[in-house]
């Protein structure tokens, strides 16, 4: 670990000013915010990130650490802890998919520390990214190549990949947000703005080092999840090597509004573990709309979701597994008893 300056940001302005000169949340940015620290400090210890200044935004939890539920939707403070959101009765009752993405992520100790904002911005588990003794990693060192393309890539992505990077987005919570059309409130040196959660992460393309569209000094302050008829009939299915505690090999966040006879009125689907970014599966949603949700419809949706998958030596199974995961999630969601 490199020595660094530590500052506490007591206000949004202070945070934005202090971080203004940095390059967004990029790996190489010399100024980094720290919230729970469970991603950042790990990466600093292994020298993948070497910020000169770390700005502690935890004091902002006073303003951006609450969870509010109204008829119109949920407002989640970006500094709320994962455990806090997972245990919130309104979240559990009305947005089970959100609670489940949090419950099934990491361990209780990590969930007690980690924040919702930090969770969205956690970085890939690609082993070549996380070990600086590997020289080829475009995400860490633009233009250096990608060691994973021909390396051990069992856990790498099959959707949204490029020739420059195939790293999987590792988180779970973002899938729930993307499926539910959540929006993010952002504050920065240029003032405030709001973006769709689905637009936060950028596909790797030629520049996998630019992971999000956050600008210099920009902070996520709140997450807004609109209410909808589908949020109660929602769930998150996470398939992983180890049941207790592991990242997803494939996951699906689904939210459904069913009409009579199980006809799909609305379907919201996001996939995890298989894509470079939290992946909204619109083709799958389209394939379902207006159809009765039975096994055949679910299979057709899954087929559509992975139509563009691109595989590597060790991750071909993810296409099949991803489809099965989605089918199971859809059928399980259709079977849910919804209390009104």
């Amino acid at each position: 670990m490199q020595p660094f300056h530590y500052r506490r940001a007591d206000s949004l302005d202070a945070a934005a000013q202090a971080a203004g000169a940095s390059r967004g949340s990029r790996v190489e940015a010399p100024v980094q915010f720290v919230a729970g620290g469970t991603t950042l400090l790990d990466l600093m210890k292994i020298e993948v990130m070497r910020p000169a200044t770390v700005i502690d935004i935890n004091p902002l939890a006073d303003r951006y650490g609450a969870i509010d539920a109204t008829d119109r939707g949920l407002r989640l403070g970006a500094l709320a802890r994962m455990a806090q959101a997972a245990d919130d009765p309104a979240v559990r009752r009305d947005y089970p998919v959100i609670a489940q993405t949090l419950d099934l992520a990491a361990s209780q100790q990590l969930r007690n520390m980690a924040t919702l904002g930090g969770n969205l911005l956690q970085r890939t588990r690609c082993p070549y990214f996380r070990d600086v003794s590997w020289t080829a990693c475009n995400k860490r060192d633009p233009g250096s190549g990608c060691a994973a393309l021909e390396g051990v890539n069992r856990k790498h992505a099959v959707l949204g990949v490029s020739e420059a990077c195939i790293a999987t987005y590792p988180g779970d919570f973002a899938q729930a947000l993307v499926a539910l059309d959540a929006r993010l409130e952002i504050a920065g040196p240029q003032g405030r703005r709001e973006i769709a959660a689905a637009d936060l992460h950028r596909l790797p393309g030629e520049t996998p080092n630019v992971e999000t569209q956050l600008g210099p000094g920009e902070l996520i302050t709140s997450i807004l999840v609109p209410a909808g008829a589908w949020t109660r009939r929602s769930l998150y299915l996470k398939v992983r090597d180890r049941e207790s505690y592991d990242f997803a090999l494939a996951s699906a966040a689904v939210a459904l509004e069913l009409g009579d006879d199980d006809t799909v009125r609305e379907a919201r689907i996001a996939l995890g573990g298989v894509a470079t970014v939290p992946w909204r599966a619109r083709a799958a949603e389209d394939a379902l709309k207006g159809r009765r949700l039975d096994e055949a419809a679910a299979e057709a949706a899954a087929e559509a979701a992975f139509a563009d998958a691109q595989i590597r030596e060790h991750n071909a199974y993810k296409v099949d597994l991803g489809r099965r995961t989605l089918v199971r999630a859809l059928l399980d969601a259709a079977r849910l008893e919804i209390r009104t």
């Binding site: 082993p127 021909e150 390396g151 051990v152 069992r154 090597d241 207790s244 505690y245 592991d246």
Partner: peptide, 25 residues
Amino acid sequence: TEIDRREARYINDNIAEYLIPVNAD
């Protein structure tokens, strides 16, 4: 332990990715 066959190097050399069963398993 996963091995990168090109470089004969271990890949998952940490206990987040080297999995062992814990109580819930």
